[in-house]
Design a binder for these strands. Structure first.
Length: 257
DNA sequence: AAAACTTCATACCA
DNA sequence: GTGGTATGAAGTTT
């Protein structure tokens, strides 16, 4: 198997904040002293410092870390398996050029009141946050400093479940806010491909960036990654166990509606 | 373009 | 080296 790319040290850079992810936080206060107190409190909640890996390529900027211990990740996975309600019936199908297919994974959407998610032309309402989802969301916010109003959950029951190459819909997302992808269960390969290196007339030779997303991990996809890079979760026939992925996003509320 | 599936050439493994 | 299988890129579809 090809070597997976995981380069770089623990340095961090982001469009919104140049500090390291674990030290960044929501800037609600003008007072520096209060800010430092909050920073101490934030760090104290994670007894083991999170070792970050910076993943970089042309137009690509991601941070990867193990956010939860194995024990905590096991517990959260179990909770999610009990609590999350996935789409069924017509909502679990997708129509492509007139043909109807079962989506090769299960999907659920949770978030702040009245937020909607559109997939392949179909819009549906987010369920209200559950305590487990709020806990994970808040852990992500504490380590990244970014807040999120929505999460898309994808459950891949085994290695046959997958998702094809795509970018996350830029129209309804704040393009400057990162997307935080938290994984539980079976580790799966995750592939980035640059938009200029796809299709027949591949304009440029740009190597794909390949990662493995582990149980309890978080992948932060910073701007402008999602503009230039497609990503996919390919089939892996030997994998027999499920994976649950949560992608936390910041959806811009469209007042025109 | 969308987002699935299918096809086919190549890579990999025992 | 060989055969079976897994992978990934390209093709197909309205």
């Amino acid at each position: 198997m090809e070597k997976f790319v995981t380069r770089g040290q623990n340095k961090h850079s982001c469009a919104n904040d140049a500090r390291s992810p674990q030290k960044r936080m929501k800037l609600e206060s003008d007072e520096r002293i209060k800010e430092e107190e909050e920073e101490d409190a934030t760090l104290a909640e994670f007894s083991h410092p999170v070792p970050w890996q910076k993943i970089e390529a042309e137009d690509l900027d991601c941070d990867y870390a193990l956010l939860f211990s194995k024990e905590e990740a096991d517990h959260l996975f179990k909770q999610l398996e009990e609590e999350v309600v996935y789409s069924t019936g017509e909502e679990a199908k997708v129509q492509v050029f007139g043909k109807v297919y079962n989506i090769p994974r299960k999907q659920a959407t949770y978030g702040d009141a009245d937020l909607t998610y559109t997939y392949s032309g179909v819009t549906r309402l987010a369920f209200p946050w559950t305590p487990t989802l709020e806990y994970i969301r808040d852990a992500v916010t504490k380590t990244t400093g970014h807040t999120f109003n929505f999460v898309l959950i994808n459950r891949y029951k085994d290695g046959q479940d997958h998702i094809g190459e795509h970018r996350d819909d830029e129209r309804e997302l704040d393009p400057l806010c990162p997307i935080a992808s938290v994984s539980f269960g079976a580790a799966r390969d995750f592939i980035f491909r640059h938009r200029d290196a796809r299709g027949k007339q591949t304009r440029r030779q740009i190597e794909p960036v390949k990662l493995e997303l582990a149980h309890g991990s978080m992948l932060l996809m910073n701007s402008p990654t999602n503009t230039f890079w497609y990503h996919s979760l390919p089939v892996r026939r030997k994998i027999t166990l499920p994976r649950i992925n949560l992608t936390f996003r910041s959806i811009v509320v469209d007042r025109k509606k």
